[in-house]
């Protein structure tokens, strides 16, 4: 348990270092005088004067060597001092805090929806592998997997928002706004996880321990509840860890498509407008969400499977 947390803490450090380094390189490669750019971010494009730039230069020690600047940059990062957005001028930390809540909400609803979709479908098709239901599901899942998440989102918009006008096209505000983006993400997740659940179900119900539980005298439903569920969830939960990468990537795409004001949208927007402090803040948050969800899954695996604990 301790080693899980320690590992994930290490990962968080790596994330911070990686994001910090990349954004630092980014900052350095930006054309023009950095002091002018920062001053423009602070006081607005029209109010930048040589004096203002000079003040910024002195205040931020911009004349130091690149290595020292790099260390300063990382030190600011450690203190969560991300600076202000070059575009809006607001402190990055405030913007990111707002976005974080929205992204986590979206991720939560999406994971929940995907579980509601994938679990029953996966278990049902795993019970009768090779049957009609199983084959239909295989085709649907293959077709879904061949779509980038933004195409699925687009199709949902065209169908539910434009054609039938059941849900709003994009934006944020009412609970109805979350349905389509969450569904787009959930479909992508479920298309893969339903297959994993199916394989796992198939393996478990054909295993000799499953048969033996029946032979001991347990009924079919008792056997499934006592020996099926837990054993089939072990690989499924472990697989969720792999799927997280897809979830995070999906969040960036879906938020951009639906103008959902989360971290992913913020990140894409910041990159487009070359707003380095915002890029750093949002990428860091994205990475940390990734680490946190990974930790949750590690702990779930640890709780579910005593075999892993013995090593």
């Amino acid at each position: 348990m301790k080693s899980i947390l320690l590992n994930r803490l290490m990962q968080a450090v790596m994330v911070a270092w990686g994001v910090g380094t990349l954004t630092f390189i980014f900052m350095r490669t930006l054309p023009g005088d950095m002091a002018y750019r920062i001053a423009a971010g602070r006081y607005g494009q029209d109010n930048v004067t040589a004096e203002a730039a000079e003040l910024v230069r002195q205040e931020l020690n911009l004349d130091v060597s690149p290595w020292l600047a790099y260390l300063n940059w990382l030190w600011d990062l450690v203190q969560l001092n991300f600076g202000t957005s070059l575009i809006s001028g607001a402190p990055v930390i405030h913007e990111v805090q707002h976005q974080l809540g929205h992204s986590l909400g979206l991720a939560f609803v999406a994971i929940l929806l995907s579980a509601i979709i994938a679990f029953p479908l996966g278990v049902l098709s795993g019970m009768r592998v090779g049957g009609l239901f199983d084959r239909c599901l295989l085709i649907i899942s293959a077709l879904l997997r061949a779509q980038p998440v933004f195409v699925i989102g687009l199709l949902l918009i065209l169908l539910f928002a434009v054609n039938w006008r059941i849900f709003p096209v994009a934006g944020f505000g009412t609970p109805a706004h979350i349905v389509l983006p969450a569904l787009a993400l959930a479909l992508v997740l479920a298309s893969v996880s339903s297959r994993v659940i199916r394989d796992s179900t198939h393996r478990v119900i054909h295993s000799s321990f499953y048969t033996f539980a029946r032979v001991k005298g347990l009924s079919a439903s008792q056997t499934f509840a006592r020996h099926g569920l837990r054993n089939l969830s072990v690989p499924v939960v472990a697989f969720m860890g792999i799927q997280l990468v897809g979830l995070i990537e999906g969040i960036v795409m879906v938020e951009s498509l639906f103008s959902w004001p989360g971290i992913g949208h913020g990140l894409a927007h910041a990159i487009f407008s070359r707003d380095v402090p915002m890029i750093q803040g949002t990428a860091l948050m994205m990475g940390l969400i990734f680490v946190c969800l990974n930790t949750v899954i590690d702990i779930a695996c640890y709780q579910l499977d005593p075999r892993g604990r013995l090593q």
């Binding site: 290490m10 990962q11 790596m14 994330v15 270092w17 990686g18 994001v19 990349l22 954004t23 390189i25 980014f26 490669t29 997280l244 990468v245 995070i248 990537e249 960036v252 990140l267 894409a268 990159i271 070359r274 890029i279 990428a283 994205m286 990475g287 990734f290 680490v291």
Partner: peptide
């Protein structure tokens, strides 16, 4: 590998792509 995998792949690609648009 662990350093590179600490970030989700697309985020890494995004950051790199941002440097040289």
């Amino acid at each position: 590998v662990n350093i590179l995998m600490a970030l989700p792949g697309l985020i890494l690609v995004l950051l790199l792509a941002a440097i040289l648009p």
